[in-house]
Design a protein around this nucleic acid. Structure first.
Lengths: 159, 159
DNA sequence: TACAATCCCCACCGTGGAACCGGGATATAA
DNA sequence: TTATATCCCGGTTCCACGGTGGGGATTGTA
């Protein structure tokens, strides 16, 4: 058998964690959401500096988000990025699906041959759906709101 | 900044998937659960053949499970592996935590510096807990039961 | 005691993704 | 035209995963 993956119901993957990539993307989109009411674009290096993200890496992620229709870009001087949708209309699942690219991945259940394999695959599916339902219940606006609430608390502790 | 990981609340890793490793481990433990009432051990190559798992790889996983206290081994001729606990007392979360080794990982929240980082980290945590709660609600015995139920159905379709 | 069966341990390899970095082309405002 | 941005293509490093190999230790059985 060739190296790589054996015939199981799983594609590749690893642990039950969300990637740094997705976190960066959400941080950037939060920043853009905060800036949404004003119509001027935000530069990559601006977002990167504010959120402490390597700018060249962020560039790639924003490109993915642009292809996914979450942001639009304006090139040239005074250019940058803008949200295309209202922050309260974008769920975290939307974003993460785009970044991790598992839209095209929902078809790979691979028909596990053993009965046990199918049973485990069912559990896997349930776990994933449970995680996705959490992500589906938050929008970018929620992140902004949580951020503001937390800053209030931080401020109170500071005084 | 040196290459590798930037300072975010996430460790490494990737998507919301469970690994092949964990699936193999659960399949093997299901097999051992089926055999639990009889007291004789199961050989690695036996489990591997039944579940279609590469035996040399399964050996490593069983070693991990042994160190985790889920199975015990009997060496020498007529040796093999046995469950140490009753199948209904072992949750899938127990097993997967052992295999993926994220018991020692719950401390690495890395104190994200930005408020937004903390907000995203909260969501991450919630997602993880949601996934874990699903895994916590199933035991090895449940896998056996689901397997038997599914085999009934398969049999009906066969007739 | 010899021997075969079986687990044990350590080391290795290939692949693919994550997280970056660089350089040059292109578009745009001033 | 020039400074400022994004765009695009590529490369690099690191590491976990999936899998393989070899030799050693242990144990039942003849």
């Amino acid at each position: 058998m060739e190296p790589g993956y054996n015939n199981v119901s799983l594609p590749k993957s690893s642990v039950l964690e969300l990637s740094c990539k997705s976190e960066y993307a959400l941080l950037a989109l939060t920043e853009l959401s905060l800036h949404y009411s004003k119509g001027d674009p935000l530069r990559i290096c601006q977002i990167a500096a504010d959120q402490n993200i390597p700018d060249r890496y962020l560039e790639q992620l924003l490109a993915t988000l642009r292809r996914g229709g979450f942001v639009k870009s304006q090139r040239g001087a005074k250019g940058g990025y803008l949200l295309t949708r209202e922050p309260w209309k974008v769920t975290l699942l939307d974003v993460i699906s785009c970044i991790e690219g598992f839209d095209a991945k929902s078809k790979e259940t691979k028909s596990p041959k053993s009965t046990e394999g199918a049973v485990v695959a069912d559990v896997w599916k349930e776990v994933r759906q449970s995680a996705e339902s959490v992500l589906e219940n938050y929008t970018l606006q929620d992140l902004v709101d949580k951020r503001n609430a937390r800053q209030q608390v931080d401020l109170m502790y500071y005084i």
